[in-house]
Write a protein that binds this DNA or RNA. Structure first.
Lengths: 389, 389
DNA sequence: ATTCTTTGTTCATTCAATAGACAAACTATG
DNA sequence: CATAGTTTGTCTATTGAATGAACAAAGAAT
């Protein structure tokens, strides 16, 4: 609520740590100048950070005409974080250091069915990652889970249509099992955060991440922070109406964006192409992408999806005026075919002012966006926690 | 950048002032308990606020079993703020005290034409309000202007289609004239802020204000703050595509929301009703509303507009997961006819989770939303400025 | 009349940042 | 190579904002 000296100290210590983390190796003098603190203050804060094993001194740096500086680096191995991407037909777990480097990973290609079954898969992955983690001062500092569904702020999954789940107390189940800080996040939010921290969105403050998979979800980074909405359900833009009286959607509405621009829509259209070869096994996105070259029907299907993606993105841009749009999740694999028609829609339709200084890119972290996002979120929570006291 | 004792003091003083402003009359002891500060700290901060004329002691309050408290009240007359709503066919100016009460107002019903002409109207209104303002310690503390167009963060109007303006340096022109802090804000943002401070949105943290007039603009209050987008152009949702290959829009796109749900759309449809009575003078919203009763063609036109408004609002809700939607500006006058169909669309189409704990209302401040919003914004800037040092 | 509560002030204490002095370590220069 | 100038990092006295405890004033309760 109110402010006092202790809060000042914690905030300044956190700023010093962030500076070392982002710009290290860096000297005390440089930190002081950048943050506008005195050298003495920085010295004492750094000493506490060193004592807490959050950073350490490395060799001396280059002199710039005087005494050589002692360089400080962030101790990325002070602990390890776990991120899980719970997909519809896979579970991907990563163990990362505090800088977000993947140290270990495990992927299970399983179709999610019952919650109990899936929970046990997840626990196995987590136990595997924990038991193979390197020794460290803080050990495992937290676990983040990205989930394709509607998650409230308490960490319950209210609804995950593509998993067929409802009302799942995932956070408390995992807290009970692991006695560690647990973060449950919508998969699009997780992806947005991942790309913001490590991927295409590194240098941007206002970006929108579009998770185009079986369905479409959207994650918002506004003013450098994830925006979750009043109850935590923001970003369900797959159900934005882009065609009044359009196709009927399972959600009860009509003309929803994801009926036109999702992987599911693409696969259904591909099936109805009925080239005689309607073997359902071939109807996988990977297969379609491989075979689009030279197949005009298929490639124009991708172009159509790109067009429809562009329509929704037009709406997003006019709404948010973001600096950057990142297209991620499985459909991003079709970049080669979709990028041109997508950008054409924006150029033709979107308000000109919004197009200046706007970047539209595809995700850089491929399948790791969401897992790295939640892992990094857990790390950030840890670095802003009581360890600074 | 970094933190120190002075910042702590300013923040605490600001908190004390806000507490007095929102909850006054209140005692020093109550403030201390609420903010978690000691009585001594509050005492000394309050004394400085009294010295700065920002609050004063009023009579003693009721005893709760001991010494009677000295009650403090915010000095709403320490200065006055000016808010201007620049409409397409009117200019409304208000002078408010620091609590947002309207002390004086002046409305000009003029059709905006050239910038120079309009600027001179505005200056006249401002001079009128300034010269008739009561004596006060700080005098006029700032001027806010709400503009129906795209405004950048520097206070230039980049584009105001309904005024026919481009690249107008409004802020610097006014600063030069009045030597006062000037705030230029998009009209929808201004309205959102007004309703948040004084109207339907008082107790909400995440709300969306829909300014449905000739065009449609939208203002976002997210986490209690106005969100403006990367460059300040957020909320241009009138150009959200809700019908692929729909009607052509002047913006270059097709199927834009405001082609279906704005006042302009309604008027055009009404004109094409051609009941023989196509006198253009009658084609004013006020006239249509008055005559809708008993006129089925007209009333169903309003219902249709309500339906289309609902479609866009559905998209907004699924996107933002707000606590509240406020429909404002001129179309809000048609509440009687539009509310039911509008809410029906939401009930039928919007994801059920988002509907819980969601309120959809019409603006409470009627034509004053925007003017009060910018005036209040100027006030807030003043109360968080150097006067606290 | 006495005791207990509550309010608001005062003052010594605490603690984080600051400013400035200083030693150590390095560069540049004649 | 000796000297002067720079840069780094530490140390110490000082500043200033919040704290906590004591206390007087004012009222309630008995």
């Amino acid at each position: 609520m109110s402010w006092n000296q202790q809060i000042v100290k914690v905030n300044n210590k956190s700023l010093v740590l962030q500076t070392i983390k982002n710009q290290g190796p860096i000297s005390r003098a440089d930190i002081a100048q950048q943050l506008g603190l005195t050298k003495g203050t920085v010295s004492s804060l750094v000493n506490e950070l060193i004592e807490a094993k959050l950073c350490y001194e490395t060799g001396p740096g280059e002199s710039s005409g005087g005494r050589r500086p002692v360089l400080l680096v962030f101790n990325k191995a002070a602990g390890y974080s776990i991120g899980i991407d719970l997909g519809v037909n896979y579970i991907l777990g990563v163990l990362t250091d505090l800088d977000g480097n993947i140290i270990n990973e495990k992927k299970l290609n399983v179709n999610v069915e019952t919650y109990d079954q899936t929970l046990s898969y997840m626990k196995n992955i987590i136990y595997f990652l924990i038991s193979n983690a390197p020794e460290s001062h803080y050990g495992i500092i937290g676990i983040g889970i990205g989930v394709p569904g509607i998650v409230n702020k308490e960490g319950d999954i209210l609804l995950a249509p593509n998993l067929g789940w409802k009302q799942i107390p995932l956070k408390s189940d995992l807290e009970e099992e692991f006695q560690l800080p647990i973060i449950i996040e919508n998969e699009a939010n997780a992806g947005a955060y991942g790309e913001k921290c490590f991927g295409a969105g590194k240098d941007f403050e206002d970006l929108i991440y579009i998770s185009a998979g079986i369905g479409i979800g959207v994650g918002f980074i506004l003013n450098n922070e994830l925006y979750r909405g009043a109850q935590g359900f923001s970003g369900e833009m797959g159900h934005m109406i882009i065609e009044i009286n359009g196709k009927e959607c399972k959600c009860g509405s009509k003309g929803c964006w994801e009926l036109y621009a999702s992987e599911k829509a693409l696969l259904e259209d591909a099936a109805s192409l009925s080239t005689g070869d309607t073997d359902v096994n071939h109807l996988e996105l990977e297969y379609l992408i491989e075979n689009a070259e030279g197949n005009e029907k298929l490639s124009s299907l991708f172009e159509q999806t790109g067009y429809y993606l562009g329509v929704g993105i037009n709406n997003i841009i006019n709404t948010f005026n973001p600096e950057q749009i990142i297209i991620g999740n499985r459909l991003a694999m079709g970049k080669e075919w979709m990028e041109a028609p997508l950008k054409q829609v924006i150029e033709d339709y979107t308000l000109k002012q919004h197009q200046r200084e706007l970047q539209i890119t595809f995700a850089k972290l491929s399948i790791y966006s969401a897992a790295l996002g939640v892992s990094s979120y857990a790390t950030e929570n840890f670095l802003k926690s009581d360890i600074l006291n």
